[in-house]
Amino acid sequence: MNMNIKLRNTLAEITGASIAMIWMWYNLTEASKMTIESISKVLAQGIGISIIAIIALTIVINIFSSVITGSYEKNIDDERDGLYELYALRLSSAIFGISIVTILVLLGWFNLTINIGLIAITLSGFIASIASLLLKIYLYN
């Protein structure tokens, strides 16, 4: 598969976000027994892990690609990238917005605990982000 720099960076973002989500999932298996402070710490650490993982993966993947192809590809953002970015942003906003309303309804009327609500809000942000990145991959292909 011929991958350009946009696809490589998008794949690095998806992988980084997925790693952070999996890490949070394993650290929140006992969420119902955990305090709100400890849950908040895990979620904040998870967000930090995703940022570091995305940066590290982007650098590693691009260095690896440059070594294999023997050439350096510049990352130029043009109007097409801006347009696709807007489509992706619209999708992620829609998913995150629907998730927030659903979680608030569940918290308000269906006895969802605040612990689970907090986790669900954070994970819905990650899911919205991954969905928008998958849309970008589809558009770039």
Binding site: N4, K6, I76, D78, E79, R80, Y140
Partner: peptide, 14 residues
Amino acid sequence: LADLVGISRQTVVA
């Protein structure tokens, strides 16, 4: 062409 107009090569292809 991409360098001349300031876009990426992928956009020229598209």
